[in-house]
Nucleic acid binder design. Structure first.
Length: 499
RNA sequence: GCCCCCAUCGUCUAGUGGCCUAGGACAUAGCCCUCUCAAGGCUAAAACCGGGGUUCGAGUCCCCGUGGGGGCACCA
């Protein structure tokens, strides 16, 4: 469609009104990919013209999330750049200059309506167009300026033609035509002198020389207005792309605040800032996000950020709304965990053990744990529950767990004792030296190998599932293995005495 | 209500008029492997919203329905 061969200048332009969503992450990602692929610039612009909804700290969380994902920007409020400032409230005078220009050209006007009278109707259905009843529309510029200088409150509105139509173009969706009669005289500048989105986005994108504007489909309804503003200013438009929004996991509508909260209770989240704590790799989140609404071909699904930079294309975007699928995120997380260098994985799981209260002072042991956990984790936060026992000095298995299936306490005690003797007597201890003898022991006692291994698993890990028992015992070390078996024997002795 | 967008398995999707008996992935089920759990391998079930056109031929193009989504603020 319009794959750029020239360097693309793209922007991600969020408003700091709350926590950063998955959908924003994807929009940022697509912009980033286009910039990196073409050797262009990725710009972060903060759209903070709504002072009422401003949330302190939102900007910080946003930046932190983007950096966590690996999406670094070339120009932005913190790093500066040649097209600044990058925070819209700091660009107020710029917008006012162009607004005045529109007024002098007759394409906008001062509106003194005390409140939005036309829109006061109770529902959108019965609402009348503002322009049908606004007296300000017919004021001369001199009259309007006089009222302004007397301090009368006012806004600036776009003068929308009653007749005709406008066609705007989306690179993915094609042309979109709308009758002007269905549009209205939208506010461009609020009574506090700050612009609304529609004006600011046009001016900023033009001044910042944005070549491709990727934003979600929520902007489609006001897209024609933006086209009109471009025309009024006499500027060329960037290439527009409006990917569809994300739907709730059940596919019924977009995420509401209530939905987000409900999700949190299930241990899931659509807030970028939560994914790290939930044990997800940024690599996996990127891979997953990229594929909701974009695909490469009929078979390739595993992508790193580098791959995506190389393979991404606007042509393969899908215009249809898509439901969020969390189980697929788990799948990708597993894939990326397994793809990691085990030393890297060790580094990444360490904080999760520490948060769970374990002291990790043996890096060599951590490395071995990482290796055994690598194929067993969907998310990193599972590490402590799966392998916390490695860091405990003392463990206390459930007494009943030490008794084998369909076995008595006596038989289990005998088995435990024989296992202890066998392991203690081995010249050296490893899977090679211990596996077969333990199996032979099971046969000798008329048991299954599973009885022997099951006992060891419970005695050493207190868990009914664990990494393979020989790997586990190697990491724990023979000395501690024997100690734990001894404890288990003592426990079993107590059980037999009670019988 | 008005305006706009969208429409292939439960979900994400491949498909750009014949390569489609519609492919892949997640999830689900079964089997194999196996000391538990995973990972891995194999298999199964599972879709072109409906109706009209256009064409020798339609999942693919057009129209109309229907369904889903979004928007209708001095929010972005």
């Amino acid at each position: 469609m319009t794959q750029p061969s020239q360097p693309a200048r793209v922007r991600f332009a969020p408003s700091p009104t709350g926590r950063t969503h998955l959908g924003s992450g994807r929009t940022a990602l697509y912009n980033y990919l286009l910039a990196r692929q073409t050797g262009g610039q990725f710009i972060l612009r903060i759209e903070d013209t709504d002072q009422k909804r401003y949330v302190p700290g939102a900007e910080e969380e946003l930046m932190e999330s983007l950096r966590w994902l690996g999406l670094d920007w070339d120009e932005g409020p913190d790093v500066g750049g040649p097209y600044g400032p990058y925070r819209q409230t700091e660009r107020k005078s710029i917008y006012q200059k162009y607004a005045r220009q529109l007024i002098e050209n007759g394409q906008a006007y001062y509106c003194f309506c005390p409140t939005t009278k036309a829109e006061e109707a109770e529902s959108p259905q019965q609402r009348r167009q503002h322009r049908e009843l606004c007296p300000g529309r017919d004021l001369t510029l001199n009259e309007a300026d006089a009222r302004r200088s007397s301090g009368e409150e006012h806004v600036i509105r776009f003068r929308m033609p009653f007749e005709g139509s406008i066609t705007v173009s989306d690179a993915m969706r094609g042309d979109i035509s709308v009758e002007n009669s269905t549009l209205d005289d939208y506010i461009l500048v609020k009574s506090n002198g700050l612009p609304v989105y529609h004006l600011a986005v046009v001016i900023d994108d033009h001044l910042m020389e944005i070549t491709h504007a990727i934003r979600t489909s929520e902007w489609l309804p006001t897209f024609p207005l933006h086209g009109h503003i471009y025309n009024a200013l006499g500027w060329d438009q960037p290439i527009w792309v409006h990917p569809s929004i994300f739907l709730k996991p059940d596919g019924k509508g977009k995420m509401s605040k209530r939905d987000s909260e409900a999700l949190l209770e299930e241990g899931k989240s659509i807030f970028l800032g939560d994914f790290k704590d939930m044990g997800y790799l940024p690599e996996a989140v990127v891979n997953w996000m990229a594929l909701i609404g974009w695909s490469y071909d009929d078979k390739t699904e595993f992508f790193t950020l580098e791959n995506l930079i190389e393979k991404f294309s606007l042509e393969k975007l899908s215009p249809a709304p898509a439901a969020i699928n969390f189980s697929k995120l788990d799948h990708f997380n597993g894939l990326h965990i397994r793809e990691l260098d085990s030393t890297d994985l060790a580094k990444r799981i360490k904080p999760y053990f520490e948060v769970a209260g374990y002291t990790v002072d043996d890096e060599d042991k951590l490395q071995q744990i990482a290796e055994t956990l690598q194929v067993r984790m969907a998310t990193l936060d599972e590490a402590p529950e799966k392998a916390g026992f490695f860091f405990k000095d003392e463990i206390h298995p459930e007494p009943e767990s030490l008794i084998g299936k369909k076995m008595t306490a006596f038989a289990s005690l005998e088995m435990a004792t024989r296992i202890y003797e066998l392991i203690a007597a081995l010249p050296d201890f490893s899977e090679e030296t211990a596996n077969q003898p333990l199996r032979d022991l099971a046969v000798e006692l008329g048991l299954k190998a599973g009885h022997v291994f099951g006992f060891l698993r419970n005695a050493i890990t207190t868990q009914k599932v664990s990494p393979p028992i020989f790997e586990t015992m190697t990491i724990v070390g023979r000395e501690k293995v024997l100690e734990r078996i001894e404890n288990a024997i003592a426990t079993l002795e107590k059980l037999t005495q009670n019988d």
